[in-house]
């Protein structure tokens, strides 16, 4: 297995520690007086998304992580899982609800996502920041309640429930932020 020596450390490098893939998201090179160089790294756990600090001393090495990222289309739900297909080689991958995270609520069949694969196993997926989804159900708009600051729950075609302005009706298309689950704006139907 390839490994990186401290002098190859740089931002963006993907490494593994005890079998867990991490990405170096920040690195501070520090060299005291006549002492050995220290590499103060911020490491992002590519499975959990958490960030930890770790200091390396000159001469250490970390195992490289075989992590790749590619565009994959969301196909369908299978039990508790989500099935994606690599757009290049049509290979299919199944991810758990945990791996897909909150964005899973907004996945619509055919949506292109970024799939992250470690040692041929999918470990995460990044949905587009914004998706356009149709409103499947909401309470009708009541007269005099059209101010934009009044919100009501709406159910989207993927089954997700979000808060949207009171003027939204069944059949409207909404632009939604998949990271926060926030309504952004009413949109035209996607082409």
């Amino acid at each position: 297995m390839a490994s990186y020596n401290t002098n190859e450390f740089r931002k963006g490098l993907k490494v593994q520690i005890d079998g867990v893939p991490f990405q170096i998201i920040e690195m501070n090179f520090r060299k005291p007086g006549k002492g050995a160089a220290l590499y103060e790294c911020k490491l992002k756990n590519l499975i959990r998304g958490t960030v930890t600090d770790k200091t390396y001393r000159a001469g250490q090495s970390i195992e490289a992580a075989d992590v790749s990222e590619f565009t994959a289309q969301y196909l369908y739900r299978q039990g508790a899982g989500f099935v994606f297909m690599n757009n290049e080689d049509y290979e299919q991958y199944e991810l758990s609800e945990d791996q897909v995270g909150d964005a899973g609520r907004f996945l619509k069949e055919g949506l292109d996502c970024q799939l992250i694969v470690f040692n041929d196993n999918p470990i995460g997926v990044t949905a587009p920041n914004h998706v356009i989804l149709q409103v499947e159900y909401c309470e009708p708009t009541t007269k005099g309640n059209t101010a934009t600051n009044v919100q009501k729950p709406v159910k989207l075609e993927t089954g997700a429930e979000i808060l949207a302005p009171a003027f939204i009706n069944i059949g409207d298309w909404l632009r939604v932020d998949t990271r926060t689950g926030d309504y952004i704006e009413r949109s035209k139907a996607p082409e």
């Binding site: 520090r30 060299k31 005291p32 007086g33 006549k34 002492g35 050995a36 220290l38 103060e40 600090d53 770790k54 200091t55 390396y56 001393r57 001469g59 250490q60």
Partner: peptide, 24 residues
């Protein structure tokens, strides 16, 4: 945060770590 490859019986290694993080 103590690097794994510190030469633990070398006083200067510890001095440099303390110097870099606490003193400098």
């Amino acid at each position: 945060d103590i690097p794994d490859n510190m030469q633990v019986d070398d006083r200067d290694e510890w001095l440099n770590l303390l110097l870099a993080t606490q003193v400098e």
